[in-house]
Simulated assay, not measured.
Amino acid sequence: MIPKVKRIRLKGVALKKLCEAVYDRDSGLCVNCSRFVEPGVKPHHEPLKSQGGQDRLEDMAMLCNDCHYLRHNAAEGVVIGQKVKAYLSTKYDHQE
């Protein structure tokens, strides 16, 4: 039998603090286009939540609303995802 992996999913105050930490780490700028992101905008998960992304600093990055939309809904979203992964790997040295 394959053991089930427990994903990290936060809510409430813990999720709010995590979102603030991502915003601070990324200096309130989109990691794709460097545009200012309004405080309170939810960070993007990379890998996507549906692909195993978790609520932790190493899996989240700030994207402006336009880039976030493109990441999920356009062909160029693949390129944006690669850029976000590269950014996060420089911060956390992901082993993929």
Rank of each mutant, 00 (worst) to 15 (best):
M1P: 02
M1I: 05
M1Y: 06
I2Y: 10
I2P: 06
K4L: 09
V5Q: 09
K6A: 13
K6C: 06
R7P: 01
L10T: 01
L10K: 15
L10C: 05
L10I: 00
V13D: 13
V13S: 14
A14Y: 08
L15P: 04
K17L: 12
K17E: 13
E20I: 09
A21M: 11
V22I: 12
Y23G: 13
Y23Q: 10
D24I: 12
L29V: 10
C30K: 10
V31L: 08
V31K: 08
V31A: 09
S34R: 15
S34E: 00
V41E: 13
K42L: 11
P43D: 07
H44M: 09
H44C: 14
L48R: 13
S50W: 03
Q51R: 14
Q51S: 11
Q51V: 04
G52C: 05
G52F: 02
Q54N: 03
Q54H: 03
E58D: 14
E58A: 15
A61V: 00
A61H: 06
M62I: 13
M62V: 11
C64E: 00
C67W: 01
H68S: 02
Y69A: 03
R71E: 06
R71S: 15
H72G: 04
A74T: 11
G77M: 06
V78Q: 11
V79M: 09
I80L: 04
I80N: 05
K83R: 14
V84N: 08
A86K: 12
Y87H: 15
Y87W: 13
L88Y: 08
L88S: 09
S89G: 05
T90N: 15
D93F: 12
D93S: 14
H94P: 00
Q95K: 14
E96P: 03
